[in-house]
């Protein structure tokens, strides 16, 4: 196994009395596609935000891409890509302008941006939409574009928070093809989802219940461990223990 690029020890986040993330520990190796599963409100987004340096942990310790999540969040940000569950490219900018902006912020060399943009759009079959305003694109395309922007600067790790929420099955498949393509380029993929069929595509998965990680392993291991046919079944067995209401 490769060395760990994400290491988390006893990570906890509390908001007042509410413990959103409760003492979680895990590791993700370089080049893995790691599925971070859990019901809505289980604490996935809170955990991912701490790993990306957007939110400070209440206690515990974590390293992402070799940097401490509490003390060096800005160094982490240089080495990761992030796509949130809410579409968050600029609606009022054109496709190429969004790519150019984020490439510029991540310090992609200026003279390579234009050619790389064309290459990327070509590969996505998206060249005709280069000059469209992002708000005019259909949802599925927006998601693919957001993902492509998140990995444009060749980050070490890309964090995807519910990337396939609200898109049709065909687009979801295409999206996973993009994820695999990124993984073959050596980018570690950390993806949250609540579509359990997608979990089967991951190298390893963890399942979060009420802020804890209740299971972690390859999909095959988990199915054996919980004597289930599918990850969906594993998930349902675990989710029955949940006491926290969906939010």
């Amino acid at each position: 196994m490769n060395e760990a690029t994400i290491q988390v020890q006893k990570l906890t986040k509390r908001f007042g009395d509410f413990t959103a993330v409760n003492n979680i520990s895990f590791e993700v190796s370089t080049g893995e596609v790691f599925g971070f599963l859990g019901a809505n409100g289980a604490g996935k987004t809170t955990a991912i935000r701490m790993l990306c340096g957007l939110s400070k942990p209440t206690s515990g310790w974590g390293r992402v891409a070799g940097f401490d999540i509490t003390r060096e969040p800005e160094m982490i940000k240089k080495n990761i890509g992030y796509m949130s569950q809410k579409f968050s490219l600029y609606d009022d900018l054109k496709v190429w302008e969004n790519i150019r902006l984020f490439a510029g912020i991540y310090g992609v060399p200026h003279h390579t941006i234009a050619t790389k943009t064309d290459e990327m759009l070509q590969r996505l079959g998206f060249a005709s939409e280069k000059n469209s305003l992002v708000k005019s694109l259909p949802m599925g395309w927006k998601q693919k574009l957001a993902f492509s922007v998140a990995i444009f600067h060749k980050p070490k790790i890309v964090f995807l928070d519910e990337p396939t929420g609200g898109v049709d099955p065909l687009t979801r498949r295409q999206f996973w093809e993009l994820i695999y393509e990124a993984a073959t380029q050596g980018i570690t993929v950390f993806v949250t989802t609540h579509y359990m069929d997608e979990a089967e595509y991951c190298n390893r998965v963890s399942i979060m219940v009420d802020g804890r990680i209740d299971a972690i392993g390859t999909p095959k291991q988990l199915k054996q461990q919980f004597e289930s046919e599918s990850i969906d079944e594993v998930f349902r067995k675990l989710a029955r223990r949940a006491t926290r209401k969906e939010v």
Binding site: L54, E74, K77
Partner: peptide
């Protein structure tokens, strides 16, 4: 409100 702020905050800007 648009959500773009978070996308900017996760960059090294």
């Amino acid at each position: 409100e648009a959500g773009t702020m978070e996308q900017i905050n996760v960059t090294p800007v």
